[in-house]
């Protein structure tokens, strides 16, 4: 089970990227892309290159964002499942969150925020405060993403026992940072990357 979930997450992310690039909105093309992603992920399990690319370590957040994008054409409500304002907050929040997490190991600061992810009330309390802020602002989709990561952590969906693995991965942080750069380069560009729409 724990070995299969990273493959499914990889398949969803791969299929979402491929569907965005190929502009495929039909159910069957998207389902085929997901199936192809699962086969690709399974075939890469014994391949050292997948470790090199970190494809087995994608976070639950990445998987859920990709799933949301793939299901967008069938979303029953008129407004998108991840509203524009939520998208902006997510993209704005990810690079600072990644920096807070990754700064100590980069700079040899003694704080070990990574270790807090193994289960600590301080990290959970901060996340609760963030969640309550989002709740007051009625950013429900982000609240649900946060709760999904925490519940996934509680039931041990991923091979790692670290909450950070569920919330965030380097590719997601890099994607958000890339979007920052894109917005700075083209201020009048779209409000969010295709995967968050």
């Amino acid at each position: 089970m724990t070995e299969l979930v990273p493959v499914v997450i990889f398949a969803l992310v791969w299929a979402a990227l491929a569907a965005a690039l190929l502009r495929q909105r039909g159910a069957w093309p998207r389902a085929l892309l997901v199936a192809g992603g699962v086969l690709l992920g399974l075939s890469m399990q014994g391949w050292a290159g997948s470790v090199w690319l970190g494809l087995g370590g994608l976070s639950l957040t990445s998987g859920l964002l990709a799933l949301g994008f793939l299901l967008t054409p069938w979303w029953p409500r008129p407004e998108p499942w991840l509203p524009t304002q939520d998208r902006r907050w997510l993209i704005l929040a990810l690079p600072p969150l990644a920096a807070v997490l990754w700064f100590p190991p980069l700079s040899s600061v003694s704080g070990d925020l990574w270790a807090l992810g193994f289960g600590d009330f301080r990290l959970s309390t901060v996340l609760l405060c963030i969640g309550l802020g989002l709740w007051v602002l009625r950013a429900y989709a982000l609240c649900l993403l946060l709760v999904a990561a925490q519940c996934g952590f509680a039931v041990g969906l991923l091979p790692a026992g670290n909450l950070w693995h569920y919330l965030l991965d380097p590719w997601l942080g890099a994607a958000a940072l890339g979007w920052w750069g894109w917005r700075l380069y083209r201020p009048g560009g779209p409000a969010a990357p295709p995967l968050a729409s």
Partner: peptide, 13 residues
């Protein structure tokens, strides 16, 4: 959100 708080809280660092 409260459920998520407890889900992310195994108790000890």
């Amino acid at each position: 959100l409260v459920l998520g708080y407890f889900a992310g809280l195994p108790g000890f660092l």
